[in-house]
Design a protein around this nucleic acid. Structure first.
Lengths: 70, 70
DNA sequence: CGAATATTCACACTATAGTCTGTGGTAATA
DNA sequence: TATTACCACAGACTATAGTGTGAATATTCG
């Protein structure tokens, strides 16, 4: 999952959502979203599920998206 | 994902795999598998993917399994 | 251009993931 | 009995997730 950050950013931008907006939706800190998108941190499973929820998709669908993006 | 441990244990047992066997396959410590199954620790996304791989299934499939088990 | 908005980055910090070792319990088998 | 396999559990430890702040740097737009 080394492209996690890129996929996250792509999905977020596809919703015209700012990092802060996503952070609000998934109850995480905005600077942390930035770290995730630059692959400087990797999420826990719980955070991953929260991110998917914030992006209005099922976590399993988001994970499929990641599996496509090797 | 509060039933993660139960699902993990069920999937592991379905393969007749010991905690140590699964630990070997996904390169984690056996005692940690025990902690996960008893819901005393929650995995990172990376560990979740490694667990799925050790159980010979796609991570997205395992996550669907979790989504079924609310 | 200038100003609002979005993002990066560095830092110090807390919370929790994950390791490692060892002990003890239980059930099955010899 | 005793050995083997499996697992729960505790404790001490290291690595990393995640918070929070402030300042610097894009980026967008009137």
């Amino acid at each position: 999952m080394e492209n996690f950050g890129i996929v996250l950013k792509k999905l977020r931008n596809a919703q015209n959502l700012s990092q802060e907006g996503l952070a609000d939706r998934c109850d995480r800190h905005p600077s942390y979203i930035s770290l995730l998108e630059r692959n400087q941190k990797k999420p826990s499973l719980d955070t991953f599920v929260a991110l998917a929820y914030g992006l209005e998709m099922k976590a399993s669908e988001m994970l499929e998206e990641l599996e496509k993006h090797p």
